[in-house]
Design a protein around this nucleic acid. Structure first.
Ligand SMILES: [Mn+2]
Ligand SMILES: [Mn+2]
Ligand SMILES: [Zn+2]
Ligand SMILES: [Zn+2]
Lengths: 138, 138
DNA sequence: TAAATTTTGCAACAATGTTGCATTAGTGTA
DNA sequence: TACACTAATGCAACATTGTTGCAAAATTTA
C-alpha cells in the first residue's frame, strides 16, 4: 500500500512528500468522498491547512482525484480511476449523497446518461449527483 | 411586476418587506442563476449581508427559489416554477453552467432522466449540472 | 554530498457564513 | 387610523473557509 502511494505520485511526476502520501492513503482507506474539512480533522494537526488546499488542488490537476459538486458549500473529493490523467478527467459515473449517514459515494458502475441540449449548447462535462438513502440507511 | 412580487410573497405567507421585494425582483430580471455574491453586489449596500443570507434561506424553504450545486463552493439560486411549494420542490430540470460567460442556466425543458441505482439505494433528488459553452459563447 | 528545485509552514489577509440581540418595520385588530 | 403584536432587519462579534507571499525545510537531480 505504501509502495502503491509512492508509485502513484511518481507516475504523476510529483515529489513524494509526507503530506501527499498521508492524504493519498486517507483517500484509499476511506469509503466515500472527502471534504477538505474531513482531511483536516482526520490527519489531526499534522499538516497546515494551506498544504491540504494545495495538495488537493495538485491532485485534481494531475487527475488523481476528482471533485463532486454539492449544494452545501463543501466540495467533496474522491479518487479517480486509472483512465484519468493530467488535464483529462474521465469520471463519467454518478455520485450519491446519503441524507442519513452523510456519505458521498462514487457509483462507479452507474454511468451518466447522454442528455440532449438545446441548439447551440455544447457540453464538456456532465455531473449527476443523486441524494437519498444509501443501502445502509434505507 | 411590483404587484407580482408582492403577491408571490403573500401567497407564501411571508411579510412583504423591502429586501424580499428587491431580491425577488432581481431574480425575475436576471437571465441566469444568482450566487449570494451577485445579489450582494447588485443590490449595492442596500441590505445587510445577513439579511440576504436569511432571505435566500427563507425563499428556498418556501419553494420560491431552488439551489444549484457547483464544484466551486458557490451555490447558485434560481426561481422555481409554480409547482414548487413549502418543503416540496419539483425542479426536475437540467442546469447548465457556461465556461465562457459564467452564466448558469435553468434548462426548464430538459428534464433529468431516470437513473437506475444499485440495490438498496433510494433516490429523493437528482441534480444534473452540465458545463460547457452556451449558445452565446459557442 | 552539494546544488537546484520544489514543497511546506507561517503570517497576514480576504471572503463567506452563523448567531444573539436590540431596534425597526409589517400585520392584524379595535 | 392608531395600537399592540409579531416578524424581519441591522449590527456586532465570531467561526469557517480559502488565498497569497515568502523564508525555511525537504526532495530531487547532478
Ligand atoms: Mn466519483
Ligand atoms: Mn433551475
Ligand atoms: Zn447512508
Ligand atoms: Zn455563455
Amino acid at each position: 500500500m505504501l509502495y502503491g502511494v509512492t508509485d502513484l505520485l511518481k507516475r504523476n511526476q510529483l515529489s513524494v512528500t509526507d503530506s501527499r502520501k498521508k492524504i493519498l492513503e486517507l483517500f484509499m482507506r476511506s469509503d466515500g468522498a472527502l471534504a477538505h474539512a474531513d482531511i483536516e480533522h482526520h490527519s489531526g494537526t499534522e499538516f497546515d491547512r494551506v498544504t491540504i488546499y494545495r495538495t488537493l488542488q495538485t491532485f485534481v490537476e494531475k487527475g488523481i482525484i476528482h471533485t463532486i459538486p454539492t449544494s452545501d458549500n463543501s466540495v467533496r473529493y474522491a479518487l479517480c480511476k486509472d483512465e484519468c490523467s493530467e488535464g483529462h478527467h474521465h469520471d463519467d459515473h454518478v455520485h450519491f449523497m446519503c441524507d442519513g449517514c452523510g456519505t458521498t459515494y462514487c457509483l462507479d458502475h452507474v454511468t451518466v446518461p447522454a442528455i440532449a441540449l438545446p441548439q447551440g449548447f455544447l457540453a464538456s462535462q456532465t455531473d449527476v449527483v443523486i441524494s437519498g438513502k444509501c443501502d445502509k440507511c434505507g
